[in-house]
């Protein structure tokens, strides 16, 4: 089990030890396991990109912002700075611009493949072209699609989607599982004849446990399209964080929330859980940095969570933040 804590003195001491370990580990791998080594991991995330291939057009309060080229540039800047990075998307990559109306998602999926996504989950709008279309488009890409609480019966999508994936960034093993929102009232039933929705918290409990105990993951991430939180009792990221043990980070979507502060919760066994979300339309890239100490006991230290603007500087801080700044609990 991961343990959280941040003790400056202890951290500095470990920094010295682990620096030595990093230097030696390539030559003496056994040493690494005996004393532990601290690794920096950057998790980058987007959600609800909604077919925003080009930057916002003129005539919008966000004109010039977003776009896959600017996103690619930013990703590569970060990748050149950090040794280990993971890029995730929390769903709803389809629907929102004429690109989807004309090409049914081909452009979006090919762009995601090229941007180097390591995993994505499915949002309600990803079914807007039907299940057959979703399968056709996803076949153009190789990144794993994770969703633990949708079952597709005998449909081909069942082969393309999986509950969870273990992403390796030596020496780290990161478990990522996905959760989809209840389709009723959001997806017309005619579009998803083979889709069965399972309780997301039950699925999450099972995935988190399997990823930790069977797969031996150092960290477990939930890629969720449930939404940040609701006035009523619909399942949400905030509820999930406080209900299901074994999750370290929830990367959310659906509610288009610009969380410039990560929300921090405590799960039923007293560990901290972080909830992040990066607005919508590729206007922001979320980035969460961790120091993970690997050894006999895994320890996870959160370092920094940020939302990074993508695109035209003229509009920085305007538009997208207005009126949508969810309350932060920390």
């Amino acid at each position: 089990m991961a343990e959280y804590g941040y003790n400056r003195r202890q951290f500095i001491r470990e920094l010295g030890i682990s620096a030595g370990a990093i230097g030696l580990s390539a030559y003496f791998p056994a040493y690494l396991h005996a004393r532990g080594v601290t690794c920096r991991l950057s998790i980058m995330h987007t959600n609800d990109t909604h077919s925003r291939i080009d930057p916002y057009p003129e005539g919008s309060s966000m004109a010039g912002m977003g776009g896959i080229s600017a996103r690619m540039d930013l990703l590569n800047t970060i990748r050149s700075e950090s040794k280990r990075s993971i890029l995730l998307d929390a769903g709803d990559f389809f629907q929102g611009t004429p690109y989807f109306n004309f090409y049914q998602g081909e452009v979006e999926i090919r762009a995601m493949q090229q941007l180097g996504y390591d995993a994505a989950t499915l949002g309600n709008h990803d079914f807007d072209g039907g299940m057959d279309n979703l399968f056709t488009q996803l076949s153009r890409a190789k990144f794993p699609v994770v969703c633990a609480n949708y079952s597709f019966g005998r449909h081909a999508l069942a082969q393309r989607c999986q509950s969870a994936v273990v992403i390796r960034r030596d020496p780290l093993k990161i478990g990522v599982f996905g959760l989809g929102i209840n389709p009723s009232g959001l997806i017309p039933p005619a579009l998803v004849p083979h889709l069965t929705y399972v309780d997301p918290f039950e699925a999450a409990r099972r995935q988190a446990q399997q990823l930790r105990t069977i797969c031996g993951c150092h960290m477990v991430i939930c890629l969720s399209h449930l939404g940040l939180g609701y006035a009523d009792d619909r399942p949400s990221d905030r509820q999930l964080a406080q209900t299901v043990p074994g999750i370290d980070l929830i990367v959310g979507g659906h509610t288009h929330s610009f969380l410039d502060q990560a929300e921090v919760y405590t799960n039923p066994i007293g560990q901290r859980v972080y909830v992040v979300q990066a607005g919508h339309s590729g206007l922001r890239l979320g980035k969460v940095d961790w120091d993970i100490k690997v050894g006999k006991r895994t320890e996870i230290y959160p370092v920094e969570a940020s939302l990074i603007s993508i695109g035209d500087s003229k509009n920085l801080g305007l538009g997208p933040f207005k009126g949508e700044r969810p309350r932060s609990l920390c």
């Binding site: 930013l74 410039d260 920094e304």
Partner: peptide
């Protein structure tokens, strides 16, 4: 130590 907000600016005509 954990929460912060940063903006990167990318100035390139080709990107805009």
């Amino acid at each position: 130590h954990f929460n912060s907000y940063r903006s990167y600016q990318i100035n390139s005509d080709s990107i805009l």
